[in-house]
Simulated assay, not measured.
Amino acid sequence: MGLVVAAVPALLVATATTASAHVSVNPDSAPAGGYSKLTFKVPNESNSASTTKLQVFLPIDHPLEAVSVQPHAGWTYEVKKTKLTTPLTDHDGNKVTQAVSEVTWTADSATSAIRSGEFDEFNISVGPLPDSGTLTFKTLQTYSDGSVARWIDEDESGEKPAPTLEVAGETVGAGHHEDSGDEGHAADTEEAEAASKTPLVLSIVAIVIAVAGAGLGVIRRRS
């Protein structure tokens, strides 16, 4: 009976691990109108094959004007563009007639492929993001044995959910890539001031404890 009870938690852990081991995008939400760095986390689910290729399909129903790829050591990437039915207008007023529709990373060798029990991460920068909605990045993960994991389910409860990015919240101005420098500087200043006060506070506490200890010693001797 004890063996059966002990096996139940192990089974639950194994099931949870398998269910959560899917290609995902981080962050999973971002403010409208801004730019965002997207990191695709790719775990290897096969016990006998390595992941050798990753294809990420960008939504054309919400085309992204600017897409750039961060080079990944040991992998080669390829970018494909699609002609837009309705051209975009960039912040300079220029017409954008094509948008990136696919980014493919391919391992240069077996050494750089993602082996069993491993994961890897691939980065792109995109923007400006639309005013609202969900961006779905359907993804194909190809293994060394020729099998393909199709992360294309738009329903998150599906067996192979596609990575999704929720766009909502306060709109960020076009061309805004990062948090305000003034806000960041203010936060750094507050942290520095707090850090500088810490030694003083500790010194005062130490003195109070020492004085209290000395007073207690005198009282004991008198008693």
Rank of each mutant, 00 (worst) to 15 (best):
G2F: 04
V5L: 15
P9R: 07
L11Y: 04
L12G: 06
V13A: 15
V13H: 10
S20D: 11
S24I: 11
V25N: 02
V25D: 02
P27C: 08
P27N: 03
D28Q: 08
S29T: 07
G33D: 04
G34H: 08
G34Y: 04
Y35L: 07
L38S: 07
K41P: 00
V42Q: 07
P43L: 05
P43Q: 06
P43V: 09
N44S: 13
S46G: 12
N47L: 03
T52L: 08
K53F: 01
K53Y: 01
L54C: 05
L54E: 05
Q55M: 15
V56P: 04
V67S: 11
S68R: 13
Q70L: 12
Q70R: 08
P71E: 13
A73D: 14
A73S: 12
W75H: 09
T82D: 13
T85V: 09
T89C: 09
T89P: 08
H91M: 08
G93C: 07
T97A: 13
A99R: 08
V100Q: 03
W105A: 01
T106H: 01
T106Q: 11
D108G: 10
A110N: 12
A110S: 11
T111W: 03
A113I: 13
S116T: 15
G117N: 05
F122N: 04
F122M: 06
N123H: 10
I124S: 06
I124T: 05
S125A: 09
S125K: 10
L129T: 04
S132R: 06
L135E: 02
F137W: 01
Q141V: 06
T142I: 11
Y143P: 01
V148C: 01
I152M: 05
E156H: 00
E156M: 02
G158S: 02
P161K: 05
A162N: 11
P163Q: 02
V167E: 04
A168L: 11
G169F: 04
T171N: 03
G173K: 13
A174K: 06
H177I: 08
E178M: 10
S180M: 01
A187H: 10
A187M: 10
E190P: 00
E193Y: 06
A194D: 13
A194T: 15
K197A: 15
T198L: 14
T198C: 00
S203W: 08
V205A: 15
V205L: 14
A206P: 04
I207D: 01
A210L: 15
A212T: 14
A212Y: 12
G213S: 14
L216Y: 14
V218S: 07
R220G: 03
